[in-house]
């Protein structure tokens, strides 16, 4: 049973090996002569001003990520629901329950929409 997952592990291992091997072999073969203007970031020919990693990102990214997580969890519950829908004995109940579930989360989506959390400023 578990052996059926071995190809997945082998693929992950092979891809990781390949990625590391490409970097390693190219580090052996490429010419290395770094100098100041080659190492500086290129911004359409402008002189770069300041650093990129001092928190220029908006808090808006955070709210989009939170909404993404919540609807990701919702889809996670859709998988077992979709599988048991073929079972006649509980399918009606499960169908109604899932729509209540989605309905409650839709309230949150409408709230987010109304508050302007989905607008990109």
């Amino acid at each position: 049973m578990l052996l059926s997952y071995l190809p997945v592990l082998m693929m992950i291992g092979f891809v990781t090996f390949l990625g590391v091997a490409v970097l390693f072999v190219s580090s052996l073969l490429r010419p290395q002569n770094p100098y100041g203007s080659k190492l500086s970031p290129w911004e359409c020919g402008m002189e770069p001003v300041g650093d990129a990693d001092i928190g220029h990102f908006r808090v808006h990214f955070f709210i989009i990520a939170i909404l993404f997580i919540i609807f990701d969890v919702e889809t996670l519950f859709l998988f077992p629901w979709a599988v048991i829908l073929a079972d006649k004995s509980i399918s009606t109940l499960a169908f109604i329950e899932m729509f209540i579930f989605i309905g409650i989360l839709a309230v949150g989506l409408i709230y987010a929409w109304g508050k302007g959390a989905l607008d990109w400023l």
């Binding site: 919540i70 987010a112 959390a117």
Partner: peptide, 9 residues
């Protein structure tokens, strides 16, 4: 999940 969403917003 609804509470988390509203709280984050």
């Amino acid at each position: 999940l609804l509470a988390a969403m509203v709280g984050a917003i």
